[in-house]
Design a protein around this nucleic acid. Structure first.
Length: 458
DNA sequence: ATCGGCTCGCGCAA
DNA sequence: TGCGCGAAGCCGAT
């Protein structure tokens, strides 16, 4: 059965070399930790079949990556365990080693005839991929498996806002919204390589010196698909309400799985598109999943300083500078904020939910973030604190969306509004506005119930 | 309850 | 060069 080839636009050939005389095709798994609907994995299978070699998938498990926490590591490990079953069933080798991802990959690449990599967007893994490609003498191909429209196919520059990238993405949707078929691998036993036991949570956790953690959400592609099924059945039909119901399960909660590559955005988009839900609800969700998410990819891909205040648009930095010395009614330090010790119970509830569960509804994220600007000494400090708390506490932290969303609090991809104290011309989001749109008492109850922590403040 | 103004700059039409 | 309009708003006038 001939398998469908991967769209050329998903491929970045780092090295054109013919396959080397290695013993296997090596897929360095990093950003797409799943066995279903993974373009990089399917491409690697096709390369294995073409070269007549077995396929080895390898992952470098590193407890020292930026902003790693017990919770984020546990979620990552959930994903690694899940992958083991899917790979074994397909007779694909699977190696998990503790260590820096680039070191683990470089070591496995030494005996590889072809190297396949998946793609994420942040600067460190981008540099690692380039470095690996520089240090081997075989064919090296990177495969985009985590976006609907590959970032450079959608646009060749940093986009200004959703409205500027939207038509560019929509023009390409038909081409890239395609089911990915699974390619059967020719039967060849993978080589026996040194690895941790990737089916044992205890082994993996021990390798990174991590005690088991209480988790509100579990990672892995099985949980991701369950979340998708739940969302398509219950959340999606009510999606117009999802923006104001902050306590329940209308939100998809898929962003954490997308962040770890436990699910494919194309698979989600197809499931939503093929559901029986109304056009309006489908479009509202697909706008978030594709246009806004891929605007964030565009931002970190084309803006070198995506994690810096200086990357914000000129008008936003100018207006914040003009209000730098405005009086603040109250200021808090990063530590006070993290302990949820402000005067504002809505804010404290949001901080507690974020800190204790790793999740927060979008509307609460916006309220949470906008207040930090009001309650800290300088906008630069506010930016740093918001990004740091975001990236350490959210299960979807350090995603391109993290940088775009925190930037949005400070004017990125947004427009100007009537000038106010402190925030200047940034879009305001007030406490009364939150009360207007959200059942705040129900929200406080919800947070107290799920965390067992009493929320203080007025 | 609804509406216009606030405010900026991109991108397209002309 | 002019003009419409936008990632989730707010406020005051009607």
């Amino acid at each position: 059965m001939p398998s469908k080839t991967i769209d050329d636009a998903r491929l970045t050939v780092h090295r054109e070399d013919p396959p080397g005389d290695g013993r296997y095709v090596f897929y360095w798994m990093q950003a797409s930790v799943r066995t279903r609907h993974n373009d990089a994995l399917e491409y690697a299978v096709q390369q294995a079949n073409q070269t007549g070699l077995p396929l080895v998938v390898g992952f470098g498990l590193d407890a020292d990556y930026d902003d790693a926490t017990p919770r984020s590591l546990r979620f990552l490990v959930d994903g690694l365990i899940d992958v083991a079953g899917g790979l074994t069933r397909r007779n694909i080798g699977y190696v998990v080693r503790a260590g820096h991802p680039l070191d683990v990959a470089a070591s496995l690449a030494e005996e590889a005839a072809v190297v396949v990599m998946d793609r994420n967007y942040l600067r460190e893994p981008r540099r690692w991929r380039a470095e690996l490609a520089d240090n081997v003498a075989v064919r090296v191909v990177e495969v985009e498996a985590n976006a609907v429209v590959p970032v450079e196919t959608a646009s060749d520059k940093r986009e200004w806002a959703a409205r500027t990238i939207r038509p560019k993405i929509e023009r390409q949707l038909e081409r890239f919204m395609e089911e990915l078929t699974t390619t059967p691998i020719d039967h060849r036993d993978p080589p026996d390589l040194e690895s941790l036991d990737p089916t044992s949570a205890d082994t993996l956790l021990e390798a990174i010196a991590l005690d088991d953690v209480d988790m509100q959400f579990s990672g892995g592609e099985h949980q991701a698909r369950a979340a998708l099924r739940r969302f398509v059945e219950d959340g999606l039909p009510n999606y117009p309400d999802a923006g104001t119901v902050v306590t329940g399960d209308l939100s998809s909660r898929l962003s954490m799985y997308l962040h770890y590559g436990h699910i494919s955005p194309v698979a989600i988009a197809l499931a939503v598109e093929n559901s029986g839900t109304s056009r309006g609800a489908r479009d509202a969700y697909l706008e978030e999943l594709i246009v806004r998410r891929e605007l964030a990819n565009n931002y970190v891909w084309f803006e070198r300083d995506y994690d810096r205040f200086t990357a914000l648009p000129e008008w936003a930095r100018t207006t914040l500078a003009a209000h730098r010395d405005d009086d603040r009614e109250v200021t808090y330090t990063a530590a006070e904020l993290e302990r949820a010790q402000t005067h504002d119970r809505y804010w404290n509830a949001a901080m507690v939910e974020m800190r204790e569960t790793g999740y927060l509804h979008n509307r609460m994220r916006m309220y949470w973030g906008k207040r930090i600007l009001d309650w800290t000494n300088t906008p630069e400090y506010a930016f740093r604190v918001a990004l740091d708390l975001n990236n350490r506490h959210f299960l979807d932290g350090r995603d391109p969306n993290s940088f775009a969303n925190v930037g949005w609090l400070f004017g990125l991809h947004d427009q100007a509004f009537a000038e106010r104290d402190i925030i200047g011309k940034l879009r305001p989001l007030t406490r009364s506005g939150l009360e207007r749109k959200v059942d705040v008492d129900a929200y406080i109850d919800h947070v107290e119930r799920i965390t067992g922590i009493e929320i203080e403040g007025s």
